[in-house]
Design a protein around this nucleic acid. Structure first.
Length: 470
RNA sequence: GGCGGGGUAGCCAAGUGGUAAGGCACGGCUCUGCAAAAGCCGAAUGCGUGGGUUCGAUUCCCGCCCUCGCCUCCA
């Protein structure tokens, strides 16, 4: 089936543009995403970004592209070093804990882990090589203390991504006054000279022992894994400046090529309308949300549906409840429509799905318009439920809805609720079935209350009781 | 000061130069032993505000108000 061309907002041009991959065959799309710094558990704001990236990746796959996806883990910087020293742990061990935690949380949210997730520290030689190249090209210099800086004045395009004027940087609000050794105020560090606070963290280099600056890892890893020019580079909106701006400078100064064709930035998540911060006590991890009794897929739904990726998403517990209810309705419907499809003819004979899939394609192609997509889904739900109530939906039509939904869910990634009923709950339900058989309704109601007290809901249907999580 | 994003029903949120998707919440009804689930019906004469362009603007233009973010820690 032919699909529309995917239109994506490009934060470089500030316009929605059709995606045009470098691959001459138009099949392969290279995608690099700036991963987390692994010094702590990721919060839901981090995961809003990665859920959005996951949506992008799934959409690309859906549109028939072969996605070459790389995301690095930043496992060396001030925060990781400080954290590991506080815990009295080797850096690698310390960051390993949070790398693992991130992967687990991603799994909770049904985020597809990129095929390659390199750690920055496993690629120091590539970074050193890139820095040397920049020095050779006079785009970087070694300062008196042995650190290496990128020379912004050597790169006229500097500021192109963020539309910044270099002179405005000089009068910028926050400039580190301590960095006397820099030639220019906007120059940024490529290689940081070892200092005692770094402890045993450090690598040898032509400029002495030290460690890479933050930005160089993404340039080295992106180019190393995906080539000097890539299709899409993404991350949270806060990375635009300085991180991505600096990546462009480093990479393009070294290669003379266009580093990235399409920039994908995800807007931030707010909590109760405010920026998350420790002082406000509104920073939640994925684990915190789970502890409140929500599931990963409920959080995924909330993160996906709260707002399109390019806009701030306001996280609230009310929003989590809304998500939970809406998702339960989708689940209920999927189950019902699936049962109605039993006995349907072979899939190739199911024709009404194509129209539905077409509407999905169209909404998705418009810069991943998830809310339009959900609007379409809920319309299917209402229309088909009505038809089922009226007994006017054929098995073939039901199968068409199943087909369309399952296709849609390759993008949404909601999957299905896996329900394991505790023995205690099942036992109460069995007793209730007996009570109902003998029309002992008072006892039946008592048992329902007992089941609800355990956090479960019971529903009476023509086929008997059905249990679900409250 | 510079750059950018928002202001659409109680809450969340799409959208369009031609008369306001969807979700959640709420009320009534149908169904049900009662519930639940599902369905039906119900709310914006209106899309921050004042002008302008137009046959027609929430959608385009200008001014104003409010709000959020970024301007070298940050997804």
């Amino acid at each position: 089936m032919s699909r529309p061309t995917l239109q994506l907002y490009n934060s470089m041009s500030r316009a929605v543009e059709p995606l045009q991959p470098l691959d001459p065959a138009g099949k392969r799309v290279s995608l690099y995403v700036c991963g987390p710094t692994i010094y702590n558990y990721g919060h839901i704001g981090n995961f809003r970004t990665y859920v959005a990236v996951d949506l992008l990746k799934r959409a690309l796959t859906y549109f028939g592209y072969q996605v070459d996806h790389v995301m690095q883990f930043t496992d060396v910087d001030d925060k990781t070093i400080r954290g590991s020293r506080e815990k009295g742990m080797p850096l690698k061990e310390f960051t390993g804990i949070y790398r693992q935690a991130f992967l687990e949380d991603a799994k909770t949210l049904n985020i597809e882990i990129p095929a390659r997730t390199p750690n920055a520290t496993d690629h120091i030689p590539e970074m050193v090589e890139l820095i040397q190249k920049l020095i050779d090209k006079k785009s970087a210099y070694v300062s008196d203390d042995g650190s290496v800086y990128f020379r912004i004045s050597s790169f006229p395009k500097y500021g192109c991504l963020c539309h910044l004027d270099l002179s405005s940087l000089i009068s910028g609000a926050r400039v580190n006054q301590d960095e006397y050794e820099k030639e220019g105020i906007g120059d940024f560090v490529l290689w940081k000279k070892w200092v005692p606070a770094d402890g045993d963290v450090g690598w040898d280099s032509p400029w002495g022992k030290g460690r890479p600056g933050w930005h160089i890892e993404c340039s080295a890893l992106s180019m190393g894994h995906l080539g000097p020019e890539i299709d899409i580079h993404g991350g949270g909106t806060d990375l635009r400046f300085p991180h991505h701006e600096n990546e462009i400078a480093q990479s393009e100064a070294a290669t003379g090529l266009t580093f990235v064709r399409h920039w994908f930035h995800v807007e931030h998540l707010l909590v109760d309308g405010q920026k998350m911060s420790k002082s406000l006590g509104n920073m939640y991890t994925v684990r915190d949300v789970l502890e409140r009794g929500y599931t990963g897929r409920e959080l995924r739904y909330a993160l996906l549906s709260g707002a399109n990726y390019g806009k701030n998403l306001n996280f609230t517990w009310q929003g989590m409840d809304d998500a939970k209810t809406a998702l339960a309705r989708i689940d209920e419907w999927r189950k019902r429509i699936g049962e109605a499809a039993i006995g349907a003819p072979a899939l190739e004979e199911v024709t009404n799905a194509s129209e539905q899939i077409k509407s999905i394609d169209e909404a998705l192609s418009r810069d991943l318009n998830i809310n339009d997509l959900l609007g379409i889904l809920f319309t299917w739900i209402r229309v088909s439920n009505k038809a089922l109530d009226e007994k006017s939906l054929s098995a073939a039509q039901a199968a068409g809805y199943c087909l369309a939904y399952d296709s849609l869910d390759t993008i949404l990634g909601l999957g299905s609720a896996i329900i394991t009923i505790p023995a205690e709950v099942q036992s109460l339900a069995d007793q209730r079935a007996e009570a109902r058989k003998s029309k002992n309704f008072p006892q039946s109601d008592e048992l329902r209350k007992a089941i609800e007290a355990l956090g479960w809901k019971v529903k009476d249907t023509a086929k008997g009781q059905e249990l679900s999580r409250a």
